[in-house]
Amino acid sequence: MILTKGEYCQFSLRTRVQLLREYGQLEFERTFEHIAVRIFALHDFYVEVVYNRLKGEVERAEPVNFINMMHLYEDSSGL
């Protein structure tokens, strides 16, 4: 499935999550208290999904430049 970041952003939050379910590949996952953050690879970009465990809902799913934030996942003491 070929989709650009811009095209992905045109969809509603619910659909962005659904697209990740259907096409995304989970790359990383970290949990910070009640917030779970997952990084999915989708076509040629990454999407960061923020899940609020207390509310039981996805708060956001946004394309990210993963290279710039990789350190957050490599160094757990960073958070």
Binding site: I2, L3, E7, F11, S12, R14, T15, L19
Partner: peptide, 20 residues
């Protein structure tokens, strides 16, 4: 409106795929 939104996203996706 949630139902409409879910449908419209599929319509948008279909238009994109037809083009691609």
């Amino acid at each position: 409106y949630t139902l409409q939104e879910e449908l419209h996203d599929r319509i948008r996706f279909t238009n994109l795929m037809l083009k691609k």
